[in-house]
Nucleic acid binder design. Structure first.
Lengths: 225, 225, 225, 225
DNA sequence: GATGAATGAGCTTTCATTCAT
DNA sequence: TATGAATGAAAGCTCATTCAT
């Protein structure tokens, strides 16, 4: 048995025991991916407790036995899934950051807009919900999520900020902290309220406005003047 | 065909049917409170799905039947609990705001510090996790939480900001948005990372530093000069 | 607000979704039959509400999980059982009708006797009790019971009556109504009283007497003279 | 404790222990009637298992404690109720029989019609369902029902038949059996089918037709010619 | 006598996991 | 390796009955 259903304390999933990518042959990987695809649909819709292994098996088109050939238990499947999903979600945000032939304010506004839109996507929103909800049970998960999603965004932006500071366009002591502030400011109003399922204007115009204010605020805080 | 346990759509709990603050007699209230206390311990530790009604009964020292005499179903108990908890959690934050004979920067720094400390408390942290996780299933919950916790903090701060702007100490177009930005900035680094269970310096000094930076940032954005 | 266990209205079990007589493989059918056998014992003894799924599982020698692998819910198991039982119960009655080289009165007396004996069997009696008791909750059940049991008997007898009328041995306007009257007359005294658990002579002789009177009555009502 | 919830064998309620009518003071009787009225509504709508003591208490406007002051257990309350209800239900049927200044056929047709209408009433129908369903568990109940309802009707009609036979209008060997046959014939088609919740024409015309056929049939079987 | 809060066994149903084929 | 039938613990919830007030 892998795990008790309702663990009294922490539910530790040692991700180091996951079959790592390099040692898997192709056929195995294909089936594994098939399972992960099915799992993604369900976990991101219904959460961890709301998804049953039978559902995953059906959705993925494999038997329950096969499921357990590839993943030792539900928690491990979940971990593997979040690992896979987190990686791809915020990619377009920091790709945006690299297109940096524009002035600071404009770039930041575009990044802010991309960030807001990404965070509002149903998948991302659900991912955030799940990670925050299950972070205590799956501490490694949050770590993975941070490293592959938020963390990457922050360090990418921090690098960009340091670069612009070097050029004299910004004046920044701690680029990482500044980047973190920037991402927090992005979440003002729309993202934050949407997380609480509160009614809020999520129109294009509203998003652009928050993005603009965020960019302007950042420039006020860290601009060269 | 057969009754589904997990409804596909929303699980609406009409909180207006909760025994409200009418004149419940003392005995009734005492037992009710006893149940809520037990429920708090468990729900705030293990989340909604992770807590069973049997556990709550045992923890509260009552029988399952008694549980259901006071609350129609698990969802309603949960709702009532969150309602009760949310109310008390952020109270000290906005009480801090009213002690306003100090200069802006100092007041804001104290508010930021109180906010950070509150959000870092295990209960608050768990409350945030649960609300975000279950907001889809319990839309009214998030609403309550917002109205009694975050919402109150924001509008209290917004009022203070408007007041200081009237005095000429701040220059602010949209006091509510400014307040929302302030609270987002409070969550930079420590709170945010703690939510993801990432290692982060949560020392007094670290908290004071983030509070100071937050206050300074706000003043840069909205100060009279 | 919360999910009610007992719906106020009808409990519809769409029997068309029951695994029908398709080509179920042998193993599946064997286990299914094993469950139905256990269910028959209990439901026919204790009725629908008086039988629990745990009891059925124990009686059938399977786990509760297995029960639910074969039947979606208690109502469906019950429906499937009644469907299976109803079919076999009255078969020997209408088989009796086909042996028709005898004169009318003798044939009818034999049919009446078979009918009375069948209706007095503990299983049939209990089946009648259950169907009548649960007809409101399971309208399709009564329908099935009628179509496979009483209905078949009536239409078989009605055909026989029409045939004899064509031969000039009977004079009948409405063969179906005549058949219905015949079956009601069969239930006079012994069957009726037994249904109410009243003391009544159920001896062979008594049965033969009622059968004879029934046959004679029918001939008086519909005989050629 | 009065009775186990799910009795393994028979559920005997010794009705001789019911507080008999003469020894009860007025106040007590009033409350008792109040309870029985509430119980009638529920038991006749939802059956024995489908009715809870809490519901009865609420419907009757008394506390559960009071319920148990007047009736030792659910089974006894149910017994007392059926006893009370059965008595009143078929009264109008045999009252019809006494108005006997008409010719046989007409009287019988009126009695048949009254009988059919009575049996089709929702209360009577439900009473029949309940008695038949619970007869095994409550053997005394069915006895009571027979003695106060069906039995009275039969013996009243049998007396009338004997009287008319003495007048030479009928030729009957066994008036009781003839009466039983008459009541069975009344149940042909409409009543029988309605018991199985099958669709059937329950119009005034249809009822009159069955009543007429029943009367004619009886006259054919037992008329003076 | 009347109340209704409290009890706890029992109900239907779900689901992670195993294992014979 | 893949299957899916089988398991059984545990879930949410009900209800006849008791008893302190």
């Amino acid at each position: 048995m892998c795990l008790r259903r309702r663990p009294p304390g922490q539910l530790l999933v040692n991700t180091s025991t996951l079959p790592s990518d390099q040692t898997l042959n192709a056929a195995c990987t294909a089936k594994r991916q098939q399972i992960l695809d099915g799992a993604a649909t369900l976990f991101l819709h219904n959460g961890y407790e709301g998804t049953s292994m039978s559902q995953v098996a059906r959705e993925a088109g494999v038997s329950k036995g096969t499921l357990y050939n590839y993943f030792d238990c539900k928690a491990q499947l979940f971990s593997a899934l979040i690992e896979a999903v987190a990686e791809t979600k915020l990619r377009n945000v920091y790709e945006r950051i690299h297109s940096d032939d524009l002035d600071c304010a404009t770039t930041l506004q575009r990044v802010a807009e991309a960030m807001i839109r990404t965070l509002l996507q149903p998948d991302s929103m659900m991912l955030y919900r799940i990670i925050v909800a299950e972070a205590r049970k799956f501490p490694l998960l949050a770590d993975i999520f941070w490293q592959r999603a938020f963390g990457v965004s922050i360090s990418t932006l921090a690098d960009w900020i340091a670069n612009r500071a070097a050029r004299g366009e910004l004046v920044v002591d701690d680029p990482v902290f500044a980047a973190e502030q920037f991402f927090m400011l992005c979440q003002t109003r729309i993202v934050q309220r949407h997380r609480f399922e509160l009614p809020v204007d999520k129109s294009d115009a509203a998003i652009k406005t928050v993005a603009r204010i965020t960019s302007e605020s950042f420039m006020k805080l860290n601009g060269a003047h």
